[in-house]
Design a protein around this nucleic acid. Structure first.
Length: 445
RNA sequence: GGAGGGGUGGCAGAGUGGUCGAAUGCGUCGGUCUCGAAAACCGAUAUACCAGCAAUGGUAUCGAGGGUUCGAAUCCCUCCCCCUCCGCCA
């Protein structure tokens, strides 16, 4: 327990190194913070780190004295022993005081460090907000309709694919029941993605849908934010949260572990439900299943050595492209700019599908996202590896990457809106037909 | 949920108050031997933080936290986790 009454991960380990990095790259860290448009007090980090070191030195020296007394005790005469006991008692009090101060200093430092974002890939576009995002590629052709395309909400109603009213009745706004072919589509998408990824050597897992606060924090979420800004649901009377993505559980899976270098890279594909409060998104995308509190997602995650993370990031992006090319959905690839990167991400690509029913006459909508988080998450979760060739002290941190294989709701929107026909039916993507069991979704009578 | 057993280094496993950061075995790395390999033999092999250019030194860690003690892997308390058996259950 810490002075704030909250349990944190072992303070003796990982994030402390961050301070050394900040110290050594002061200008770069400050520039990065500016590029990302966040506020973080770098100087406070240095100040708190100095304070922590000072206290640690003091505490260590006092403990060393105590140990000397213990050593002297054996050969001491009874009179000397009485004296040593007294002296040790005094030192004990000092140590207790210093340790308390040290813990507090570590906590303060941790807080200051926690708001410093990851460094940024040199090729990531620089810009505020999402204004400087760069479209790096576009795939497929937008469908040319000779009729006015419907949006997915209308299609769901006409084809009886979802029940939003029942969702609201049972669980509230932004919950939904999938029905009929939408259910089969979701299951088919899972199968399709899983099959593809297993073939590529990813280890399939089904993860818990809940995770501990400390794991969320390690991944870079802020479950302790106020209810107004918190992105995840917390479970009352517990230290658990509903996960917002399997990235959380997949990353946490190897927390506090040391990989052998030969075991890396490790690639996982995880299936989970995802729960999001959508705090701060009030009023946006209120229709249909675009922005909902619960959805199903197949997520990729990789642990690797630092020299491989750039390549694996590209690999994951290509898999995402491959998945949506296979579904026949037109999409574009965005290289996310500094102002739009999350704290943990070093670089991030988003895939945006063309959604003919979105906005006025169609618009792009995010369907996947892949981030290279370098060692940001690994530091917080204590994920290291043992290098084949020992080079000096310390075990290096692994790099972590994540990427959406399929977020079912968004994929379903893209499938329905792009596959719709003049007669109101929807063509099922060929790759999904074996699981859906039909070529076309038509209205029920 | 009930009863019992247990959590020690990469793994296995000893250790019940100081001589223990910790025997031994396996694994790994280096060496000897060999044309090469295996075997055998010799040696090395936890992590983090602090000080130092470094050599090195200091501190902490035997599931977590607290306590007793000059001194705790070892004794006491609380919590967590794992295993076995029983009960319950999709």
């Amino acid at each position: 327990m810490y002075p704030d009454g909250v349990r944190h991960r072992d303070p003796g380990t990982p994030p402390m190194l961050d301070a050394a990095f900040v110290r050594d790259h002061l200008d770069a860290v400050k520039a990065n913070i500016a590029n990302r448009g966040v506020t973080a007090d770098v100087d406070a980090v240095l100040r708190l780190d100095d304070e922590r070191k000072r206290l640690q030195r003091q505490a260590d020296e006092t403990k060393a004295k105590q140990n000397q007394i213990t050593d002297a005790f054996k050969k001491a005469t009874p009179e000397e022993r009485a004296k040593l006991k007294e002296e040790s008692g005094k030192l004990k009090e000092q140590v207790a005081g210093l340790d308390a101060l040290l813990k507090e200093a570590e906590l303060e430092l941790r807080k200051a460090l926690s708001v410093i974002p990851n460094m940024t890939h040199p090729k990531a576009p620089v810009g505020a907000g999402d204004t400087a995002n760069v479209t790096v590629a576009e795939f497929g052709t937008k469908p040319a309709f000779d009729f006015k395309p419907k949006d997915h909400v209308e299609l769901c109603q006409l084809l009886d694919l979802a029940d939003f009213e029942a969702g609201t009745k049972v669980a509230g706004q932004k919950f939904y029941f999938l029905k009929n072919e939408a259910v089969l589509l979701e299951l088919a998408l899972i199968q399709y993605a899983m099959t593809k990824l297993v073939a590529k050597g990813f280890t399939p897992v089904i993860t818990p849908d809940l995770a501990k606060v400390e794991i969320l924090e390690g991944i870079g979420f802020q479950p302790r934010d106020t209810a107004e800004t918190r992105q995840v649901y917390t479970v009352a009377d517990s230290d658990l949260c509903l996960i917002a993505t399997a990235e959380i559980t997949l990353g946490g899976m190897h927390a506090d572990q040391v990989f052998a270098e030969d075991d890396l890279p490790k690639r996982y594909v995880g299936l989970s439900h995802c729960f999001r409060t959508e705090a701060g998104a009030a009023g946006r995308d209120t229709r249909g299943i675009y922005r909902v509190h619960q959805f199903t997602k197949v997520e990729m995650f990789a642990f690797c050595t630092p020299e491989h993370s750039d390549a694996i990031h590209e690999e994951i992006r290509e898999i995402e492209q491959d998945i949506f090319l296979g579904l026949g959905i037109p999409f574009r690839v965005i290289d996310t700019c500094t102002g739009d990167l999350g704290g943990p991400a070093y670089r991030k690509y988003d895939l945006e599908a063309w959604m003919p029913g979105r906005g006025n006459g169609g618009d792009w909508g995010e369907i996947t996202s892949t981030s290279n988080c370098t060692d940001y998450q690994a530091r917080r979760l204590g994920i290291r590896y043992r290098p084949k060739e020992k080079k000096g002290g310390g075990l290096p941190f692994a790099h972590t990457l994540n990427g959406t294989a399929v977020a079912c709701t968004r994929a379903i929107i893209a499938i329905l809106e792009n596959g719709q026909q003049a007669d109101g039916s929807v063509l099922v993507p060929e790759v999904l037909r074996p699981w859906v069991g039909k070529d076309r979704i038509t209205a029920k009578r």
